[in-house]
Design a protein around this nucleic acid. Structure first.
Lengths: 143, 143
DNA sequence: ATAGTCCTTGAAGGGAGGTTGAGGTTCAGA
DNA sequence: TCTGAACCTCAACCTCCCTTCAAGGACTAT
């Protein structure tokens, strides 16, 4: 059996069958039908679904994911160039996400390090009570 | 003017006023009211909002963000221990997100490197046409 | 004091990403 | 051949995260 039923695909991918149908309705994955109109998926679809779930978890929308997957030819056998193009585009997108996370982390580290948000150490390093009482300006940690 | 109107806060944070009210209704931020019942925010709220937006962009829910922000005492002047606790919790959460992104990136790199998903190089390294035709198993790149 | 802008609440609407259920069909094993 | 599990479609519904309105009140500059 080299084709998967929707139930098997869903189970192996760790998602509900309704989600699989939903992804298919959005064109993120494709299937062929049996004579009795049931969906059958290629093994490679499992990889696509894993890709979709992981991408979602890092904050990417299905539309964005679909656009990326859409650059892979559905007419089978993507070329090395196809993959390189997808990979390059995503690498920068993923680096961007990592940068965002680091910004978030820096925000926390900044708070701990400098004691902004009225930590005692901040009041110490800035003896004027007024500033400590209302917190430092947003510039240090702004968007 | 050391307090912000909702309009100013929204503008400086780069979000809509409706979003600010929404965050407040969820307890993510707080305000005081003027005699005429208008909201006024502390400068530090700007930082909270920036934090919220960034955290959202990396795939965290408002609930999760609110839980983290909730560990900071609203009764002002969080201690160093408060911040350290929040930071520790988030650091692992953020490291987890980075790990997810790297997993995604590895998936792409893997595809390029080994040519799974029926790249020609994959067919070459695995001369049996059958495997190349249906793609390799999901194990290589599974969840 | 008055115009113009900003603010208030509450309810309804909307898009993303699904889930659930009804009513019916197909598949696989005994 | 029959039966039970799995599948089908379609529509309604759900949560999250807001946005948009309506009807009215507050602030500020002149």
């Amino acid at each position: 059996m080299n084709q998967l039923t929707i139930g098997h695909l869903a189970e192996r991918a760790g998602v509900a069958t309704s989600a699989i149908r939903f992804y298919e309705s959005k064109g993120l994955i494709t299937s062929v039908r049996t004579v009795g109109n049931q969906r059958r998926y290629e093994q490679s679809t499992l990889r696509r679904v894993a890709f979709i779930r992981t991408a979602q978890q890092v904050g990417l929308s299905l539309e964005e994911i679909g656009a990326a997957l859409g650059t892979l030819p559905d007419g089978r056998t993507p070329t090395r160039a196809d993959w390189q193009r997808l990979s390059r585009a995503w690498r920068s997108r993923l680096d961007e996400q990592i940068a965002r996370i680091e910004a978030l982390r820096d925000r926390l580290d900044g708070c701990i390090g400098c004691g902004c948000l009225s930590l005692k150490t901040c009041a110490l390093s800035n003896p004027g009570d007024a500033v400590a009482a209302q917190g430092s300006g947003p510039v240090l940690l702004g968007p």
